[in-house]
Design a protein around this nucleic acid. Sequence first.
DNA 1: TGCCCTCGGGG
DNA 2: GTGTACGAGGGCA
Length: 797
Amino acid sequence: MVERTVRILSGSYSKVNDGVVIELFGRTAEGVSITLLYDDFRPYFKLVDPPNDCLEELREDDEIKEITTEELWVDGEKRKCKKIVCTYPWKVPGYRKRLKKRCKVLAADIPFVQRFIYDFDLSSTVKVDGELVNDDYTTEEILSVENFENTDPIKPSLNILSFDIENSLEDDRLLTIGCVLKNEDGKETRNFDASEKEMIEGFQNYVQEKDPDVITGYNINGYDLPKLEERAKEIRIDEINLGRDKGKLRKKGQRYWTVNGRIIADAWWSVRSELNLKRETLNHVAEELLGEEKDDVDSSKIDEEWEKDSERVKKYCVKDADLALNILTELEVLGKAMDMGTVAKLPVGEGLNPRTSTLVDSILIRKAEENEVGVPLTSHGGKRGKIKGGYVHSIEPGLYHWVSVLDFKSMYPSIIIQNNICFTTLSEDGEIESPTGVKFLTPEEKKGLLPEILEDLMRERDEVKDKMEQAEGKEERYYRGLQNAIKVLMNSFYGVFASSFYRFTDPEIGESITAFARENIKQLINELQDDGLKVIYSDTDSVFFQSPEEDLEKTIDISEKIARDYSREAIILEFEKILNPFFSHGKKKRYVGRVIWPEEDLLVRGYELRRSDSFQAQDEALREIFEYILDDDVEGAVERAKEWIREVRNGQIELEKLVISRTCKKFSYYKNPDSMPNVQAAKKMKDLGHKFTPGMKVSWIVTDAEKTPQKVEPWLPDHEIKKEADWKYYAERIAKTLSRVTEVFGWDKEALLAGNKQSDLFSENFDDNGNGGTDRGKTSEDDKFEKKDEVTLEDFV
DNA sequence: TGCCCTCGGGG
DNA sequence: GTGTACGAGGGCA
């Protein structure tokens, strides 16, 4: 009998005899990779008061192992239920579909490994004992578990394999596979470059031998993994066995690839979710984030490069794998996934790119079952009922100084707690009534599950934050990550109840939460105004107000005092930042400002340029205009905007700044290829005798946008554009971009194009202090609940 | 306003 | 394999 402490990385199961064995893969406190096996668990689901004939059938069914009786809360009342234990997890969907027609079915759509984790109430790290066994897994140890026990989370360091492939553009053949393996001993690299068969098998064996916890690379989900599989099929290799169970690599859904026992972490996905970059090429990210540069192999001429110097290409391939690995490390992707796994009590793999419903399920299903509350199925197919979102205060166009920003701390969770909002407290007899007229029982009558969970999380977060403040260095970072994960988890609870389908969702609940929120913030605004403060803007859980003092120290003091004074028991206000200046052209959710406290920064929301399809002049012009505005030179901004447009319309601009680029796939890929400018450019490029390979980036200049589809000319180094650019089109595009900012001063798109003000609706009510205008305060119908992190100007200019 | 289509990363 | 799968932007109706 041995004992191990194991961080769980991922889970799966496989068939044995007349049942299944649960496989949990992880790493021990000593850093040993391990497979945990447990074969005494069977799938089950529940039925609410099933008719007798239905029960009879089930009793006679060989696949059904056991039927027991229990009482559960269903739709607000105690009901007699049957727990149906069956043989194999994959049989459950069939029963679910058939039985759903005859009675209410509960908990028949919970993935088997998660079912196991909930039932054994496992958390992120477990202490297990059992016997070490021999079996066909690639981990160092394999343990047949007799006993599971929860223990404090550990963060063992993981072995990561990063890889990259190069393949021919001409015939798709694999040229090389480059690998970088990182473990406790450091890094090692490896290249495969023999026949395709040898490369794929070599790679497979390498993965099995080195047994990484994590497989990464850049855009591997979208490119390398599908390409590997494609090439394997081509040369009659049925499957690529990369799993810890030596099982195959397989695709799940549209975008995900999985393998049992390992975590597949695409570095590009992390870049997308963690950073807000205009371009996300490996080259660009490596430079931004790591200050490193890619080797300069031109991948659009990969065949030539390979021909010329295959050693160089191989080096480049490994370098790319290394960059992806460094990005993953730099972004602390796995640390964050572990934190998420810790707070949601799930395997690390589930904490990476987590689905909110999975996180919430993990906590809520356990809680529900503990309280004998039935777990409904997630309903599919119905219409996504949009609920009313947060309150957004109208903003008077203009430039402001000394603007202080306050935030409600964890507003939605606080509201749920304060009003005991839960699907278990929803009741006609409730004494708590939401602004939408929905009633909830008081906590004294019946404490809701959601408020209970959120209170615990809130308390836990406060404790972790306290520890964070006491700690330093590595420890401080650990607590910081943890408290952040708790925050994400808390918001997930609100998220699933507010938006999409979720098994416990009731639109009345989501609507009550946001209604309470709107009431709260409006009340705060009124109180501030009654006390003589000028509220400039407000969105969902934040309030922007004009500081009565034009002085940093005084503004800080005042803001802190206001945050204290206006906080109510469960609803706490926090002083967030000071903006000076702050600009908006009067459209909600769109503003720019200089943050001067707590740290200097630039804040831009809603003015971001679209990432693709934009041309250099647009970027440049917008950046310049913002500079004027943040320097308080409104007039200069408008003048410069007009000048830009005039120049573009008159053709006084380098064509280079008007080039639009985009990749172009195989023409047949597109539904309507002739309508697409990139296809048109690619075709013309070919006509001109240039090489075009599908997937290449093509560049063009628009020469006539009046026609549909618009006419374009390819932009090529040695090709002179004979037709005129469509100056009018470009002037309009620039005007559209810039007018979003200048509109407020009476210069809308048309005015900018005309060069003089025509309709002057805004400016009449507008003076330089941003005063005036009519109050058009309305509730936003916007249902984007998750607040995006703010984007800074550096990110997009 | 809402639906449909496309991109982005990769070679 | 008890289940899901991006998110944003533009064009067009």
